[in-house]
Write a protein that binds this DNA or RNA. Structure first.
Length: 440
RNA sequence: GUGCCCAUAGUUUAGUGGUAAAACUCUUCCCUGUGGCGGAAAAAAUACGGGUUCGAUUCCCGUUGGGCACCCCA
């Protein structure tokens, strides 16, 4: 009789064992390979559009985000993981990519690069939020930024195109680009004012949430789903009527480019983004549910133009357009629609050794196969033939190579077709050639 | 930050106020040079802490974690 040690289960930090931190998940092999596929596809597409990859640190000075993302935004006010160093500096785990990339653009004098400067990056971000569908405390984004000397609507269009293309190539159907313009530094306040004064006398006709939102974020009233608020929305002032001529022209051009590309978009005068640095074009990409499908409540990606950020950070005035895609959200959709990229595993042959001599030679044999570009899988620690064959079976190997005592002496090996059971003895020198022939 | 729901082996599920059942998986064996099927065996859990109780996995409270929603966002 053996007494087993009780395996005490964890409850967070204070226990004998640990769990992952709230809202932060292990990406297990099954999901990790999906993630890698998405990354590979994104890289391929972005490189085609001449984006170059960049990697900035996970941590920046807290002040960077205060200055750019916006001090009154939720991200800065309550969603940042901050930390103090021993030297007394206050740092923040990056909650988004754009400020860090903007900082790098200035710090490394990228304004002297030939423009446009197109950059992309993929990696984890951190926001202290309550986890829910499509929302985590550590999550991954695919991010792209275009810095240009000209404030040209064609960059907006190409940026949106690249973003759309990634989702499209992942076979996500019913994509819709929600797009709007929020004007520039001169015309934006006008719209807000108009909206507030429109709603001012009508407060009683609003839902509770909207009453509260009105002074804080009037633009959000337009997004309300409560039935009572609907009639008022229809009469509400429209962004386009308050935006200045320059902004209007810019927006019109963007839409014309999108028309030319035949991209599915919807004007959404109510779309506003929660980050301070946006100007003119803002957009989100959503996917609409098909028949009988549950609604997907989150955007897969979003972004927009930010023409003031670089200057705000002390650089010379630079036009910029950027976006980000939520990797977990993409995977979520691929999952619910059952359209995960099919993983066709590489065909691997399974090497089986029997006896000391063969075991000793097997590592070298694997190297030989490697040089011949043959994928090989094994279970080197197992001794019995039956166990190794079982392993080969589970690994779905089309061929097994049986390397026994006798074969090791004779410099030969048996190739077994796992499906038919047919076996053939071949000299080791001819092995790569024979394997390739049988696999085709 | 607020509200609602949830927590039993690696996974999916039973069940009970008297410390728990099964399926799949994993490992070993039947089979020490031939896998899949089949048979056998072994291993494996009541998230954590407290309370009520003679006794709690079960009831209650708290914590942690998970799910969902609000807020906001990718």
């Amino acid at each position: 009789m053996q007494t087993k040690p009780k395996n005490k289960k964890p409850a967070g930090e204070a226990s004998t064992t640990f769990q992952s931190v709230k809202g932060m998940h292990d990406v297990l092999p099954a999901e990790s390979c999906v993630q890698e596929k998405i990354y590979r596809l994104a890289r391929e597409i972005l490189e085609f559009y001449n984006f170059n990859s960049i990697a900035t640190p996970l941590v920046e000075y807290l002040g960077l985000y205060n200055r750019t993302t916006g001090e009154a935004t939720d991200i800065v006010e309550k969603q940042m993981f901050t930390l103090k160093t021993k030297g007394g500096e206050t740092l923040a785990l990056r909650p988004e990519f754009t400020p860090g990339i903007g900082r790098a653009y200035i710090q490394h004098g990228m304004s002297h690069y030939p423009h446009p400067v197109k950059l992309f990056t993929i990696g984890p971000l951190f926001r202290y939020e309550q986890p829910q569908a499509g929302r985590f405390r550590q999550f991954n984004q695919i991010d792209a930024e275009i810095f240009s000397t000209e404030n040209d609507a064609i960059y907006d269009a190409q940026g949106i195109l690249a973003c759309y293309r990634i989702l499209d190539e992942l076979k996500i159907k019913n994509l819709i680009i929600n797009i709007n313009t929020i004007g520039c530094i001169t015309c934006r306040p006008n719209y807000r004012k108009a909206l507030v004064s429109y709603y001012k006398n009508k407060e009683k006709q609003l839902c509770t949430d909207c009453k509260r939102r009105l002074p804080v974020n009037p633009l959000r009233l337009l997004d309300c789903k409560e039935p009572i608020c609907q009639p008022l929305k229809e009469q509400a002032p429209n962004t386009l009527d308050y935006v200045c001529a320059t902004c209007k022209k810019h927006f019109k051009e963007v839409l014309e480019y999108l028309d030319n590309l035949a991209l599915p978009y919807a004007l959404n005068p109510y779309l506003v983004r929660g980050l301070d640095y946006y100007s003119k074009t803002v957009f989100e990409i959503n996917t609409q549910p098909a028949e009988g499908e549950e609604k997907i409540d989150f955007a897969l990606g979003g972004g927009g133009r930010y023409d003031y950020l670089i200057e705000e950070l002390g650089g010379r005035p630079t036009s910029a357009f950027g976006w980000a895609l939520g990797v977990e959200r993409i995977i979520d959709v691929l999952h619910t629609r059952n359209i995960l990229p099919s993983s066709r595993p590489k065909e691997k042959v399974f090497l089986i050794h029997i006896g000391d001599l063969a075991k000793r030679k097997s590592l070298c044999l694997i190297e030989t196969l490697r040089h011949a570009h043959i994928n090989v899988i094994e279970s080197l620690g197992k001794e019995s033939l039956a166990a190794q064959l079982r392993a080969a079976d589970k690994a779905d190997a089309p061929l097994a190579l049986i390397f026994g005592q006798k074969e090791a002496y004779e410099e030969s090996i048996i190739i077994r077709d796992m499906k038919t059971g047919a076996q053939e003895m071949v000299p080791l020198t001819k092995l790569p050639e024979m394997i390739k022939r049988k696999l085709n």
